[in-house]
Design a protein around this nucleic acid. Structure first.
Length: 571
RNA sequence: CGGGGUGUAGCUCAAUUAGCAGAGCGCGCGGUUUGGGACCGCGAGGCAGUCGGGGCAGAGCCGACCACCCCGACCA
């Protein structure tokens, strides 16, 4: 490819809007351009990288026996209604009508479509298991796109869906996909950490994300020091330490409490440790289904030194989305912000207690009245909860659940994930059954597996660049070698460059040939560094019958013959 | 959705007090250059985000809206 003809050249300045290295470099290198927020053009150079990533994913997926196909981008909206996802995913679901007023969802993920297809195929256990996948543009009406390619509203995703007879068969597929993902990312040059995560609106009971560690990553997760446990903060479990668990129960009493509404105010007033204070946070369940009177209000009760994990809480109460309750809502059930207590609220709100309430005795906190506190509150004796479980947010330094190893905090870019879906979709969607050996209809046991191509591309750039530009791993570089002719007009240089490029291409090597005349060597070298092709071969009057070969990230160059160059780049 | 910010040429940015819309980079033409971002000359390119308001006069002032960015909330 002649650089002079390439659509999308390098530029000196990136837009001020670009803040992440991957965004700046992909812009400056001529890989991408922005359309509207979160929607990008991939220019020819960027698309070559995109397609190389796709090819590697396809290759690894096909090795497992998965089969590529494609489903329509417009999904009949009634399918999404069938699984209630117009509610659970409505916030980022885009819809559109055709000329006959028929409603579609613009696909952001395609579980319903694949299940709809498969249920109409009327299969039997003999056809199972299978795994079908596609590469297609996904639409997500993100509240806020950000970071160039890292979080966008329109992107190509590889999404795979597996259909199995039962959980036992499924587990094999899930493990296989986990291995395949590690293999894919490793071929792309990325080191990933597999972390337990929340299924969110995708549904199912468990899932794992593949995170590339990065300071600019949006995802926060924890890894135990011994490496045995890793989990996204949404789901990370930890061992709660016992506090004054041997202290005898003291008599419950109320005291005047002229204080502010924060936890610190309570500590200061009573001179007692933070962990002994009872933290009460009121939430509102935004599910649209009719709920009797105040049951939309949920009171989370937890030890004072812990924070409430809203994801865990939402799961325990079966909510899609929670928000903090308003002052009015808290007043409506006869309580007072800053002085909320589970004592006396039984039946008025759904009370959810963290298991940490059993690690401390004689707790203190409010009594649902302004400027009145209680001392020596104890679970079971003074109050009971409707649901008791894990609703606490893990923090760095906490002990992992096995009690042996501390949790370390990490940030990462989530480049892929694998979900167990179980019967989630096949029970919600009528007739999503196969005929089993015993002649009876049974629902498919499912999983799904996604990789965002553009985000993966951006993650690679975040990992592989220096102050001069990108340093592509060989496997995804847009070209194998960047041939730079210097002083094109000197006798023989252009002809020699052309001949070398021809030989390389004949050998199946992908060449970007900077054939520009009237461009100084400095500009060409700077552009080569920015574009980041792994090898640079300089042809000039000085190089004679050889070329000057340099790795993108090496300081020194060396002279090699064309034959050496071909054999070096062929392997 | 809350907080903050920005909209002037493809990009980076200027323009006293409201008084004919500017530069650099990039692009085109001509010429001189060519081993780490060369130079000279000429040229093309802008209804100033949109709409409204007061004003002799608006890029600038006032209002509304829109778009975009950052932080948070939220979220694969």
């Amino acid at each position: 490819m002649k650089y002079s003809k390439l659509v999308g050249k390098t530029v000196r300045d990136a837009p001020t809007d670009a803040v992440f290295d991957s965004h700046k470099l992909l812009y400056k290198g001529g890989f991408i351009r922005e359309s509207t927020a979160g929607r990008y053009y991939f220019l020819p150079l960027g698309w070559r990288v995109h397609e190389k990533i796709k090819a590697i994913i396809k290759n690894e997926m096909d090795k497992t026996g998965a089969q590529e196909m494609i489903v329509p981008v417009l999904h009949p909206l009634h399918l999404w209604q069938e699984t209630n996802r117009t509610q659970s995913a409505g916030f980022e679901l885009m819809t559109i009508k055709d000329g006959r007023e028929f409603q579609f969802a613009l696909g952001g993920t395609a579980e319903e479509m694949f299940v709809d297809l498969v249920r109409n195929l009327k299969l039997s256990y003999r056809d199972l298991p299978f795994n079908i996948y596609q590469f297609s543009t996904k639409f997500r009406d993100e509240i806020r796109a950000r970071g160039g390619l890292l979080r966008v509203r329109e992107f190509v995703m590889k999404d795979a869906y597996s259909f199995d007879r039962n959980d036992k068969e499924f587990n094999k597929v899930y493990e296989q996909m986990a291995k395949t993902y590690s293999a894919i990312f490793s071929r792309l040059g990325l080191t990933t950490t597999k972390v337990e995560a929340d299924n969110g609106y995708i549904g199912g009971e468990y899932c794992h994300e593949f995170q590339v560690e990065s300071a600019i990553g949006e995802g926060r997760f924890f890894v135990s020091e011994n490496g045995k446990y890793s989990a996204h903060e949404d789901v990370a479990k930890f061992k709660r330490d016992n506090k004054n668990i041997d202290e005898p129960l003291k008599p419950y009493k109320t005291v005047e409490a002229i204080r502010g509404t924060t936890m610190e105010d309570g500590v200061k007033l009573h001179g007692l440790p933070l962990w002994q204070q009872m933290k009460c946070v009121m939430f509102f369940n935004q599910n649209q289904q009719p709920i009797t009177n105040n049951q939309q209000l949920i009171l989370a009760v937890i030890r004072g030194d812990y924070d409430v994990n809203e994801t865990k809480l939402a799961h325990l109460v079966g909510a899609y989305h929670l928000r903090h309750a308003t002052v009015e809502e808290i007043h409506s059930i006869g309580s007072e912000p800053g002085f909320i207590s589970p004592v006396g609220l039984k039946g008025k709100v759904k009370i959810v207690g963290d298991i940490s309430l059993r690690t401390v005795r004689n707790m203190y906190g409010g009594v649902n009245k302004k400027h009145l506190d209680s001392l020596n509150m104890n679970i079971d004796r003074d109050f009971t909860v409707d649901i008791e479980g894990d609703i606490a947010m893990a923090q760095p330094g906490f002990l992992a659940e096995d009690g042996k190893s501390k949790l370390v905090e990490k940030r990462g870019i989530e480049v892929g994930n694998i979900f167990q879906l179980g019967y989630h979709y096949t029970k919600l969607m009528k007739g999503a059954n196969f005929i089993d050996e015993d002649g009876k209809e049974k629902p498919y046991y499912m999983g799904c597996y996604g990789i965002g191509i553009g985000r993966t591309l951006a993650a690679i750039v975040e990992k592989f660049h220096d102050e001069k530009g990108i340093i592509w791993p060989k496997a995804v570089a847009p070209y194998d070698v960047h041939v730079v002719e210097v002083k094109s007009r000197e006798y023989g240089v252009k002809r020699k460059a052309e001949e070398i490029c021809g030989q390389l291409e004949k050998a199946g090597i992908e060449v970007l040939w900077d054939d520009r005349e009237n461009v100084s060597p400095g500009v060409k070298f700077a552009d080569a560094d920015l574009i980041g092709i792994p090898w640079r071969a300089v042809v000039s009057a000085k190089t004679g019958e050889k070329v000057e070969l340099k790795r993108r990230n090496a300081a020194e160059a060396r002279m090699v013959s064309v034959a050496e160059l071909v054999s070096l780049l062929s392997c």
